[in-house]
Design a protein around this nucleic acid. Sequence first.
DNA 1: GCCAACGTTGGC
DNA 2: GCCAACGTTGGC
Length: 151
Amino acid sequence: MNHWLMKSEPDVFSIDDLKKKKKSGWDGVRNYQARNYMRDDMKLGDLVLFYHSSCEVPGVAGLAKVCKTSHSDPSQFDSKSEYYDPKATKDEPRWFMVEVEFVEKFDEVVSLSTLKATKSLDKMPLVQKGSRLSINPVNEKEFKIITEMAQ
DNA sequence: GCCAACGTTGGC
DNA sequence: GCCAACGTTGGC
């Protein structure tokens, strides 16, 4: 099983929104590398660190898991959507998404500053300068460390 | 295929 | 709101 970290702006979609909805398609990803992770590598049951970005306390807010593997992201065909991509066609969709299911909301956000202060996590792309990718693989050790920090 | 210009991300 | 870092676009 693989582990992942997925970023979301809580003003747009937060861990509480996922808790309410139970499941959600991860639409709107418009970066090829992040798309490839979803399309090629994310498997059913993979656990996901749900990360809140661009907010007061950026950090890992909870856990989700992949409940549906890659399929075409419908927002690319919707001309009214901010995610609309005129170059995508139904025969040749350009963007893919997975669906995730709520697992757990942490009592407290494991903040980015805490993650940065943790030596054993300094290999994570997340804590490295200039890293902006919205979906990242997380190795098992790192995943364990972070979920234990949430206890 | 290069690379300048432009757009986006996201912490601070 | 600023700005560094990075990705994408498009002219050549």
